[in-house]
Amino acid sequence: MTSVWGLIAAALALAFAAAWWRGRVRARVLRAALEAKSQDLEQLQMSFARFAPEEIVERVVAEGVTPHGERKEATTLFADLVGFTTLSESIEPDVLVRILNGYFERMSRAITGHRGHISTFIGDGILALFGALQPNPWQANDAVHAALAMREELADYNRELAAEGLPTLSVGIGLHRGSGVAALVGSRDLMQFTFVGRIVNLAARVQDLTRRFEVDILLTRAVKDTLDGRFELRELPATAVRGIEGEVEIFAVERFRGEA
């Protein structure tokens, strides 16, 4: 009888030990999976921080998307390809996408290389911000250096396109500086960190003027006033633009005399 109870006790002990061991292994596996997910999340958060200020990223992670905007001083750069809509109707879609992606790649490099942040691509247009993620007293210089780098990148890219027998591109770039509201905007399904305000519209309108004056980079008086004197600018006639009261003082950017 005693041996039966002994056997039962041993079997129970064995079962408990096995259950305990399985639990331990399972906990270890779950812990590893949790750590992997946590690392993925952190990586995602770090990647996201390149597109929005850390505080906003953290707030989104902690509380979800909440309405929050902050007034900031920034320089906006608006770039648009000249005549691209017509071009897009005459070449194969695959080729068009390849040309466009190559263009965006090079322009992004020029912008981020000068501390800019691409807010959005609109068709073949680019809206970039300087000073929106972090305070940047040198934002005007950075933005105009970025515009000049875009000019150089495009010249290189056009040589590549021409060598392949593809049509070349030309771009118009408008720059303006001022105050606006930086915020996460959009719908529940699609949010983006961007800048809202007159400065964005004005940069886009000034970009439109590049066609009329047959130049590639135009900036407003607000940018010029805080710009390094080594940028060579050419003053153009003050011009009225749609949606903006009064005339806008504009300057074409020639080049930078010195090391960027």
């Binding site: 007293p137 805080t226 004197g229 010195g258």
Partner: peptide, 8 residues
């Protein structure tokens, strides 16, 4: 001011 505004 010129130095600080332009770092040059």
């Amino acid at each position: 001011e010129d130095i600080l505004a332009n770092l040059a």
